[in-house]
Amino acid sequence: MAKDTDHSAPPIPKMDRDTYREALYALQIELVKLQRHYIRNGDKILVILEGRDAAGKDGVIKRITEHLSPRETRVVALGKPSDRQQTEWYFQRYVPHLPAGQEFVLFNRSWYNRAGVERVMGFCTDEEYERFMETVLDFEHMLVRSGITLMKYYLDIEFETQIKRLEARRTDPLKQWKISPIDAVAAEHWDAYSVARNEMLTRTHTPITPWTVVRADVKRQARINLIRDLLSRLDYDDKDHAVVDGDPHVVFPFDPHRITHGMIAP
């Protein structure tokens, strides 16, 4: 099991609570500006958040949506497909949750379950996996052509971070709802998840629907820099450019060389 870290990646400094709260407050003001803009213009925004168990997806979603209008903001976190859904076209159960005009939708995991959990845990066949990989970009490009702004983020963590956070779930009574049967074997399949992640990112990263990687071992830095990146890539009125510049050591466009150069966890 891969546990050693490639130290070619620069360490991420911790962020003290006061600095974090000040930065988050400024960014949440920008998110409200963004929402007012896309409601006024009828925009459709879809953000996909992927990553290993305990990568911090729930935390960043909470900070993004905290002060947004719930009528135009939706978080989608689908559970295990039903027997009927398992017979459907794979993307079918995701389609009803896509954004309409004036909506901002965040997927806490998405159709990329097939390239990650399902692939590693044997919940899909090799044929189903290949069919997904061969068609997912056509599906996403169709969404973009329909007017949806699609953004894909992968939250990346080290092995030791996952172990620590999974243990916290087991011991913290306020985090019991996060525990799943998959958690129990997540660390055991670390290397298989790494292989699946690398193939997913490499095969589904395109100029039209690119992947952005977030180094998420330091939660506060990950949250702040993901929100900064999201805001920097969207147009809206009265943007404060001084607060939306992200740290390129924390958030960056995917490139296969990032894997071998230590910017993505082994």
Rank of each mutant, 00 (worst) to 15 (best):
I39L: 12
Y38D: 13
A196T: 00
A26Q: 05
G42W: 01
A100V: 15
W211S: 14
I148L: 04
V136Y: 07
E30R: 09
Y25A: 13
I61C: 12
Y38V: 11
R223T: 03
R258H: 13
I208G: 03
F107R: 01
W177G: 07
L78Y: 06
S146L: 09
W89G: 06
R109K: 09
R71K: 13
P253C: 11
N108I: 10
P207H: 11
F132P: 02
K152D: 04
D156T: 04
S82A: 12
R131E: 10
D247P: 04
H37D: 14
V75A: 01
R84Q: 14
H37G: 08
G51L: 07
D245R: 10
Q221M: 14
H205P: 00
D83Q: 07
H257N: 15
T135N: 14
W177F: 06
F91D: 00
D238Y: 15
E130Y: 11
D6K: 08
A196K: 00
I12M: 05
A186M: 05
Q162D: 00
R109Q: 14
E134Q: 10
G51Y: 07
I148M: 05
E30N: 11
R84F: 09
D217W: 03
F159V: 02
I64S: 00
D58M: 11
Y112L: 13
E130K: 10
I48N: 05
H261F: 06
F139E: 00
L78P: 02
L155P: 01
A9E: 02
R215S: 12
G147V: 03
D245I: 13
V218I: 11
V244F: 08
I12G: 07
Y193S: 00
Y112H: 11
E22Q: 10
F159P: 03
V47C: 02
L143A: 09
A23K: 12
R169T: 08
E103A: 10
L34A: 13
R131N: 11
D183R: 09
I29D: 13
L230T: 13
T204K: 03
D16Y: 10
R74N: 08
A192N: 08
V117W: 00
P13F: 09
I61N: 12
H241F: 10
P13G: 04
N41E: 10
T202Y: 11
A184H: 15
W177Y: 08
K80F: 03
T19W: 00
I64N: 02
